[in-house]
């Protein structure tokens, strides 16, 4: 029920924004997480990079939403302040795309998120949230 209302409201609110893609579906997947940021991924040919200061003792989640709900179009990789890669939502080994990446942070600092499009004509956005 909550999801419905929330979805509905987001749909309403999206009235003025220019994004073609609604993040509502994305956010609907949040369960118990508090929404923090949205990242628009509207340039399919490039990699997009965003940074955020993650705080320790917080659990974060990065969710990728694509238009048709199929996660297989893009992936996100997380890097720490020194640009060490921590993980990715794409499992090389099993060739599996996951729609989200979670991170239980123990070290406060600047982190980088890189988004990649595997299929060139994707239309995605991403949501960053944390657990309360």
């Amino acid at each position: 029920m909550k999801k419905f209302i929330f979805t509905g409201i987001l749909l309403l609110l999206a009235g003025v924004s220019n994004s073609q893609f609604k993040t509502a579906d994305c956010v609907a997947k949040l369960n118990g997480f508090t929404f923090l940021k949205t990242y628009k991924l509207d340039n399919p040919s490039k990699e997009s990079e965003f940074s955020y200061v993650f705080s320790k003792d917080n659990s974060y989640i990065i969710i990728i939403c694509s238009k048709d709900g199929n996660p297989s179009e893009s992936s996100v990789s997380l890097f720490d302040a020194n640009k060490n890669m921590l993980a990715s939502s794409y499992d090389e080994a099993n060739k599996r795309h996951y729609y989200a990446l979670a991170y239980n942070c123990k070290a406060t600092g600047m982190y980088y998120m890189k988004f990649k499009f595997d299929k060139p004509s994707g239309d995605c956005s991403s949501v960053l949230a944390f657990k309360r």
Binding site: K56, I61, L78, D80, L86, A87, S88, S89, D91, Y98, Y99, A100, L101, A102, Y103, N104, C105, K106, A107, T108, G109
Partner: peptide
């Protein structure tokens, strides 16, 4: 965890 790849952080920061 729950179908989502979860990073368990081993690094640490101290203040």
């Amino acid at each position: 965890v729950d179908g989502i790849p979860t990073i368990v952080d081993k690094s640490e920061s101290k203040v």
